[in-house]
Simulated assay, not measured.
Amino acid sequence: MKHIYIVRHCKAEGQAPDARLTAAGVEQAEKLAEFLSDKAIDLIISSPFARAYHTIKPLSDKIGVEIALDERLMERVLSDKNHPDWRDMLRRTYDDLDLCFEGGESGNTAMSRAIRVVEELRNSSCKNAVIVSHGNLISLILKHFDDRIGYKEWEALSNPDVYRLSIVENKPDIQRIWVD
């Protein structure tokens, strides 16, 4: 059985693509490497954002698996404008996956690009893979497999967080396995 470990990045200094991990985030990345090191990971794919890459780098170093960067795992842009009510805007996009704000990306569009990565992994020869991405996009990946997932589940994500996606007889099984 193939497992895909879906990892949310560790604590970071901000949201910019080049935002680094905080000191606590660096420690979390080391704990994450230890946590995942016995999972027989043979493929790692990460968002190109610095916080995602540096989250999984300790695991990559520990198990000797190179990190492939994939722009399809970049965080979803809700809007290209700053909005004080961005949380309410985000909440609305879980109810209407086609809702798209100015300069942003709809939930369906973001979900579609991320799910292509998951499907490629499912059809690949790898045994166990890690995907490292960002909270909103991860919640949309999970929503693809379980429509009950929405804003509340996004809000409950931790930094880092780990979900294991297994497909058994064409039925998805999603388990949150990170315990900090």
Rank of each mutant, 00 (worst) to 15 (best):
R8T: 13
H9R: 12
C10D: 10
C10F: 10
K11I: 02
K11W: 00
E13W: 00
G14S: 09
G14T: 10
G14V: 09
Q15T: 14
Q15V: 13
A16V: 03
D18H: 13
A19P: 02
A19R: 04
L21V: 08
T22W: 07
A23D: 12
E27D: 06
E27W: 01
E27T: 04
Q28N: 04
A29N: 06
E30I: 08
L32R: 08
D38T: 02
D38F: 01
L43D: 13
L43M: 15
I45W: 11
I45D: 07
S47Y: 04
P48T: 11
H54T: 08
H54I: 02
H54W: 12
I56N: 11
K57P: 02
P58D: 05
P58H: 10
L59V: 03
S60F: 03
K62N: 04
K62Y: 01
I63Q: 09
E66L: 14
I67Q: 12
A68Y: 06
L69W: 07
E71G: 02
L73P: 00
L73H: 00
L73K: 01
M74R: 15
V77P: 01
S79F: 10
D80C: 06
H83S: 06
P84H: 09
P84M: 07
D85E: 15
R87C: 00
R87H: 02
D88W: 00
L90D: 01
L90Q: 08
R91K: 07
R91H: 05
T93E: 06
T93G: 06
T93P: 05
D96E: 11
D98P: 00
L99Y: 08
E102I: 14
G104K: 14
G104W: 14
S106V: 05
G107S: 15
T109S: 14
T109W: 06
S112T: 04
A114L: 03
A114W: 02
I115H: 05
V117E: 04
V118C: 07
L121P: 07
L121C: 15
R122A: 09
S125V: 15
S125T: 15
S125R: 15
I131H: 10
N136G: 12
L137N: 12
L137W: 12
I138A: 11
L140P: 03
K143N: 05
H144Q: 05
D147P: 03
R148S: 14
R148Y: 00
R148P: 00
Y151P: 01
E153Q: 14
W154L: 13
W154Y: 09
E155P: 00
E155N: 05
A156Y: 03
